[in-house]
């Protein structure tokens, strides 16, 4: 799978279609984002599987936004999974990236990863490599019981008490793009203390993520949270409250089922 990506990117570079390719590089056992600009460097390309599939994911779209800002007239390639491609589209929609200057190079996630993150479409449309697996089919929500807001309100507040205000959820989020972040507005959310205003701090972020249907449910926020706060479940809960249930993994899976679209249409390319 990696060879196909490497070859594909080499071609893009050779044909001059891209100035560079934002992917992941492995150094020793460490994996991190890297902007590849020559074919030789691609030797060290990684797909983000250190020990387990997808255990070393990064918000490459968000990093690309910074690169594109610095080189506004160049075109770049970017490594994408299904969730990354969804995030990319969000950034196109709000003009944070220009769709003509980004060439996504996609690969499919294995079903175990899709199940783990409840991903209803674990592959991008720009699929270059990987076996397409069916993805999350909805059904029983593991945290379903917690989604009854009023019944579990105190439980949520107790969970929020562990927040250390590290901003990790915001900083890792591929679709958090605001220049001035409401979470840093001292007039709305008092500064200086941990836990931060409970529930205002985490609820404000949740509203921002789902109120405008931004969240792509990649789960990176939950992965980095040092307090293990189940943020994805929180966003689902808020989505339910504000009538955006259709944007949750369960909602998307249900839509996919009724429309019959999805993986069958794309098929396997490797």
């Amino acid at each position: 799978m990696k060879e196909q990506i490497q070859q594909h990117v080499k071609n893009l570079l050779a044909e001059g279609k891209i100035k560079g390719f934002l992917g992941l590089r492995q150094q020793g056992t460490d994996i991190g984002p890297y902007l590849f600009t020559t074919a030789d460097e691609l030797e060290d390309l990684s797909l983000g599987d250190r020990q387990d599939p997808g255990d070393s994911r990064y918000p490459l779209d968000k990093i690309l936004k910074r690169i594109a800002h610095k080189y506004p007239t160049d075109t770049f390639g970017v490594l994408v999974r299904g969730c990354d491609e969804r995030a990319l589209r969000q950034l196109f929609a709000v003009s944070m990236l220009h769709r003509d200057r980004v060439i996504p190079v996609g690969f499919a996630c294995p079903s175990e990863l899709a199940e783990k993150h409840q991903c209803w479409k674990p592959f991008p449309d720009a699929l270059v490599a990987g076996e397409v697996s069916p993805g999350f089919a909805g059904g029983e929500d593991a945290v379903g019981a917690r989604l009854d807001l009023l019944a579990k309100l105190q439980e949520w507040f107790d969970t929020f008490d562990t927040c250390v205000k590290c901003y990790g959820c915001r900083n890792i989020c591929p679709v958090c793009y605001c220049h001035d972040c409401t979470l840093e507005e001292a007039a709305l959310l008092p500064t200086g203390d941990i836990p931060p205003a409970n529930p205002n701090f985490l609820m404000t972020r949740a509203m921002h993520m789902v109120g405008r249907s931004l969240c792509v449910y990649c789960g990176l926020c939950e992965e980095v949270c040092p307090a293990n706060i189940p943020l994805k479940s929180l966003y689902k809960l808020v989505a339910k409250v504000v009538g955006q249930e259709g944007t949750t993994p369960e909602g998307r899976a249900a839509q996919q089922k009724t429309s019959g679209s999805g993986q069958q249409a794309v098929g396997s390319q490797g």
Binding site: T162, V164, C166, P226, A227, N228
Partner: peptide
């Protein structure tokens, strides 16, 4: 904070 993670 990352030690606190383990406590939680």
């Amino acid at each position: 904070p990352l030690v606190a993670t383990r406590i939680f």
